[in-house]
Structure formats: structure tokens, C-alpha cells
């Protein structure tokens, strides 16, 4: 089977771009955020707030506050650039879109479907924002937590 990869490094499709402080961590439309461990979500995560991201212009340090936890991050240059591929879903096949999302790889599960899967290179990223430390607990800031936040990071 053949999976085409289109190279279309255009500006983000919806025209939204990051402000410069954020864009310096990736490209103007896309940033990679690396966390030690993973985000553990209970229930439906759709549209939920994870936390607050702050960037200090002077030190180029970023902090991420999730609930009671504060993470410190930094800018890391990647050794080799990463291409970010996005699965191309033709607008006409909305109905079969759900089937696709069950197949996380280019495996054989999608090989026989009528609509050929293709991927777009949407950006080439040379930097990433890395939160490599364990989260620090924050005391006395409970009032600032967004009520609907269900996110939390788990350190390894």
C-alpha cells in the first residue's frame, strides 16, 4: 500500500498564530510541549482547560500551572528537526472519520478503506518547550484554580 505525504508548509489553516513569546518555542503556528510523564485525564477532555502557561520574556523560562502544581520549563533546541504530520481527512468523508481515529498508525486497518489516507507535513519544528522537572506543589493558591480543571500531571 502507499500512503502519500504532502509537503505543504503553509501558514496555519485557520489563520491563528501564536504571539511572539510563544512562537519562539516552535513555529508561529505550532509548539511542541514535552512533559515528563503524561497528562492523566478523567472523563471527557474535550475543550477543557488544562492550566495556565506563563512565559518570562527576560529569562525565556516558561511555567505551567496545572491545579495545585507548578511546572518549570525551558527552551530546548532539537538535534534533528521534527516534521509534524497531520492526517489529511477529506471533508466529504465525515462519517468514516470516527473509524480512522481508532487506528493510531498507518497500519493495515485503514489499508482497505475506500478513501486513501494521506498525511500533510504541516510544520518543521526545531525547538521544543520541555518541562523536565517534577511538579512543585503550590500552597494557598487554591482559589485560583479553574473549577472545571480535571488535568493533572503525573511525574514518573
Amino acid at each position: 500500500m502507499i500512503v502519500p505525504i504532502n509537503i505543504s508548509l503553509s501558514s496555519p489553516s485557520d489563520g491563528n498564530t501564536f504571539p511572539p513569546q510563544l512562537a519562539q518555542f516552535g513555529t508561529e503556528g505550532l509548539v511542541l510541549i514535552e512533559l515528563q510523564g503524561k497528562l492523566d485525564v478523567v472523563g471527557d477532555s474535550e475543550g477543557q482547560t488544562i492550566g495556565t502557561l506563563r512565559i518570562d520574556d527576560a529569562t525565556k523560562k516558561s511555567t505551567l500551572r496545572i491545579g495545585h502544581h507548578l511546572l518549570e520549563g525551558k527552551l530546548v533546541n532539537l538535534q534533528k528537526p521534527l516534521a509534524v504530520l497531520h492526517r489529511h481527512t477529506p471533508p466529504s468523508v465525515k462519517s468514516s472519520g470516527e473509524d480512522y481515529s481508532d487506528a493510531p498508525s498507518h497500519g493495515d486497518s485503514v489499508s482497505q478503506s475506500a478513501e486513501p489516507v494521506s498525511w500533510d507535513v504541516m510544520a518543521v519544528v526545531k525547538r521544543k518547550m520541555v518541562f523536565s522537572r517534577r511538579p512543585m506543589p503550590m500552597v494557598g493558591r487554591a482559589s485560583a484554580i479553574a473549577p472545571d480543571s480535571k488535568g493533572g500531571t503525573k511525574a514518573k
Binding site: P81, L82, A83
Partner: peptide, 26 residues
């Protein structure tokens, strides 16, 4: 210091597993 709200995608169904990272040789 500017603040940005970090959110999950509004359409998790179409976005989950729709991205891959490919390391590029020079």
C-alpha cells in the same frame, strides 16, 4: 508576564491520533 490558557482540543475525536512526529535527516 503574559498568560496563556492551555486547553484540550475542542474536537478530540478528529484530533486524537491525527498527528505524528517525523525526525528529519539534515
Amino acid at each position: 508576564m503574559p498568560e496563556h490558557t492551555l486547553k484540550f482540543s475542542f474536537s478530540t475525536v478528529t484530533d486524537t491520533a491525527a498527528f505524528k512526529l517525523l525526525e528529519l535527516p539534515t
